[in-house]
Amino acid sequence: MTAVLEAQGVSVHFGGVRALAGVDLDVQESELIGLIGPNGAGKTTFVDAISGFVRCGGRVALDGFDLAGLSPHERALRGLSRTWQSTELFDDLTVRENLAVASRRPSLWQVAKEMLGDSAATSGEIEQALELLDLGWAQDVMPGDLSQGQRKLVGVARAIVTQPRLLCLDEPAAGLDTGESEELGRRLRALANKGQSMLLIDHDMGLVLSVCDRIFVLEFGKLIASGKPQEVRGDQRVVSAYLGGAAAEVSGP
């Protein structure tokens, strides 16, 4: 069986700075994968690279199809969907419209038809996504009127409305309080259990460790560990990456 996402030797350079050095990462069908690492380790760069916003070396394949040379919107059409740490909603559109932008792929002809007829028919996918994240009540609200946590959820809803093959979430829990973060975790887990493959980046180790199937750890653009949550949690390199060079002395037995 082919992996949903297969990234091999992904490298990114910014000028002379190496942001990612040959990262290998795979996401299997209905897996929830965590990607963690200290600030500046290259996690967001990795998502930018696979979603086509940053040029990268190496090979990125979605369902075995090589994505090389495809623009971001083409990758999105192929089923690679993502969110941003800074949410990046369309602030000029209501929540429902935010989802509608992503959900439809109109041809010129359909645009013309829509122009002549009444406004667009409701789409089942939007209802489903709203329901999945309990956002039905907010569909006619402008994003600016929502709390940070609610905006994050809308970002996730907009990313899943296309029923993507792979959903990449960049720090969905940043800015949420502990309770909200836990609730988000439960929802992501439920989504994965329904068969959605996901790549989750977050600094909230509690969230990542408690919901992910497997975890990859980056530091200075390199993969330093990967495996099941318990394995990663106990890995000395991971602990020292987080607590600093001298951590070994503290975290020793």
Partner: peptide
Amino acid sequence: ERMLAVRSNERAAAAAAV
């Protein structure tokens, strides 16, 4: 909607397959 998406945020619009 797609026009406003482009106006709001070209990056996010591209990610939403616009």
